[in-house]
């Protein structure tokens, strides 16, 4: 297995387990809210939503780290640019 295959395998695992964890947290929140409306079900749903928003960010961060380790500085810069643009979106939203 060469380096690119290994990289793609790691990303596949991150996205797969990330999706299941975020989905499980949302499902738990929806169920808690249905059974006990006074409990913090909606907070759990919001946590799951934040996990989903962060999952692609984590994927780009992981790519950045892997490109840095491979001393591929052009692609490290491209990955960092994508992260910076996503961060800029959040900053604009906060204004």
């Amino acid at each position: 297995m060469d380096r690119a295959d290994h990289r793609d395998g790691v990303i596949a695992s991150l996205l797969w387990y990330g999706t299941w964890i975020a989905s499980a947290v949302i499902a738990l929140g929806v169920v808690v809210k249905a059974i006990r409306p006074d409990a913090h079900g909606l907070d759990l749903v919001n946590t799951g939503i934040v996990l989903f928003i962060l999952l692609p960010v984590a994927r780009v961060m992981l790519l950045l780290l892997m490109f840095l380790r491979a001393r591929d500085f052009v692609y490290s810069a491209i990955s960092a640019t994508v992260l910076a643009i996503i961060a800029a979106g959040v900053v604009i939203g906060l204004r």
């Binding site: 989905s23 939503i49 928003i53 692609p56 994927r59 780009v60 939203g93």
Partner: peptide, 27 residues
Amino acid sequence: GVTATASAGAYFVRGDIDADIAGPVAL
């Protein structure tokens, strides 16, 4: 995923994502 996250982050901090609706729909 990355494309949607770039705008979803902004929507979320603005409070435009209603967990009551977004949660069941995403699931």
